[in-house]
């Protein structure tokens, strides 16, 4: 029956694919708990994502060693800001990473303190300056201490602190 020959060819191909499939598809691949439409996956994949290391440790972690700075900053309006937002993510500090790099750039402060008088956003309520005109080129921390930002004794601009 020569008319059936293409059929045998197709069946053979299907068989080959089915055999190959058992080698290629991982054993734990299947329908997960979320069902046929959204659940197909390797059952071991969530473990990969769970196993990723935590890098942002949070202020309570910093507090364990840097209590003085934590306490001082805790009394300032900047207490809402995580230490690691400015000091860099702690990650493996103090073990594998002995020192963190503090971001002292003007642009870091201007993230909140560039004055944008937006009427319908909390941004408009934050006291700020125009970064383009306010003591350009001078590090903010020369005058405003980040952990105690209210202006006390004002060192002369450009002078030694």
């Amino acid at each position: 029956m020569h008319v059936l020959r293409p059929l045998w060819a197709v069946l053979a191909l299907v068989l080959v694919i089915l055999v190959l499939r058992t080698f290629v598809v991982p054993e734990d691949f299947g329908i997960g708990e979320r069902g046929y439409m959204y659940g197909w996956h390797r059952a071991s994949d969530p473990q990969y994502w769970q196993g990723i290391s935590v890098k942002l440790r949070g202020r309570e972690y910093c507090k364990q060693c840097h209590l003085a700075q934590f306490t001082q900053n805790g009394e300032s309006p900047h207490r809402i800001i995580q230490c690691e937002n400015c000091h860099g993510l702690a990650g493996q500090h103090p073990g594998a990473v002995p020192k963190l790099t503090v971001d002292r750039s003007r642009d870091l402060c201007l993230r909140c303190h560039e004055r944008l008088a937006y009427p319908s956003s909390q941004r408009g309520e934050i006291r700020g300056v125009s970064g383009a005109t306010h003591n350009q080129g001078v590090e903010c921390a020369k005058c405003h201490k980040p952990h105690k930002p209210t202006l006390g004794e004002k060192p002369p601009i450009g002078g030694k602190t």
Binding site: P26, F29, G32, E33, R34, M37, Y38, G39, W40, H41, R42, D45, P46, Y48, W49
Partner: peptide
């Protein structure tokens, strides 16, 4: 809850976990 990104994946590399989070299988 009905992630279109998961529906279109031809190999089952992205999926919704039981806790609702949509994950991507980097090796798949």
């Amino acid at each position: 809850e009905n992630p279109p990104c998961v529906q279109v994946c031809p190999v089952g590399a992205t999926y919704q976990n039981a806790d609702g989070v949509v994950l991507v299988d980097r090796s798949w």
